[in-house]
Design a protein around this nucleic acid. Structure first.
Lengths: 150, 150
DNA sequence: AATAGATCGTCACACTTGCAACTAATATCG
DNA sequence: CGATATTAGTTGCAAGTGTGACGATCTATT
């Protein structure tokens, strides 16, 4: 007699950490992505570029990529789009002329400020739904992962 | 006098939950992906399809997509590839002939069994590096997120 | 100073993905 | 019963992505 479905499947995805982590991250990301997409028509790489520049002020494209784990062509294209929208300006470095120093324009900073506010609200809303216990645990769990990878 | 970098940037990405969650998930996923890619040349959608079928036995393409949050075209293409490799077989349903009942072949089950074993080892290794405290916290944090979304 | 090697950012190309349209089959409702 | 709507799965097409090559510039070695 054969079992169509094994009674104890070798791997239960719902219990598998990588799977759970991914699903949770994807769910959170998509919710947040719909916000900046609806508000400003930003893609994910564009939002990340904007946010990284907003946080650090002036950076090169390479630095943005390193910090946000984005491929350099992704950054290159995001920068191009943001520049077209006049939310970002480039300046060739005087000392090393391979480098471009990127900076948000006043208009870009405005968008950033608005989205930063929304981001905080989003995060607060999410965390409040987890409860203070859930929040602590999630934070600690992520910290553990970061300690391992970092 | 102007500050190039704001002293207190409106949003610190390293502290922002969606960002941290994503980065952690991406790091874990890529490590694991490199395993099934190197071993069997599987893509992510293909692995997910294999794993879902391995767990549940017989499913339709739609069911696989629903369970693993994959777009139906993604599933369709993954099924096609797995079928070509003879790791998966289709059978039109006798009652509802729109439906295809998908099932792993013996060869497919073999691959699945191997990868399931590797997956458990991968997870165990990861968790051991988090420590039993980190493990508990991560589990609890994910559970909180799942409770909120589920 | 000259050559070789590394780095920055861009581009062409192939590959992956999602959306919308499509075929085939079933379900619903007058 | 018959017309319409819905569902399962595939495919064409457009958009997004990573790889590798490239020009330009800088660094290191001699």
């Amino acid at each position: 007699m054969e079992n169509e479905t094994p009674e104890t499947p070798p791997l239960v995805l719902e219990d598998f950490i990588p799977y759970r982590l991914n699903k949770a991250a994807e769910a959170v990301s998509q919710r947040f992505a719909s916000i900046y997409r609806d508000r400003y028509g930003l893609t994910r790489p564009e939002w990340r570029t904007l946010a990284t520049l907003g946080q650090f002020g002036i950076l090169t494209a390479t630095a943005i990529g390193a910090h946000s784990s984005m491929h350099k062509t992704k950054v290159s294209r995001a920068v191009f789009t943001l520049e077209k929208r006049r939310w970002l300006s480039r300046k060739r470095d005087d000392i090393d002329r391979r480098i471009e120093n990127l900076e948000l324009t006043p208009a870009g900073r405005k968008v950033y400020a608005d989205l930063a506010k929304v981001a905080h609200a989003f995060e607060a809303e999410l965390l409040s739904n987890l409860g203070s216990k859930g929040e602590k645990e999630l934070n600690a769990g992520l910290a553990a992962l970061e300690a391992y990878f970092g």
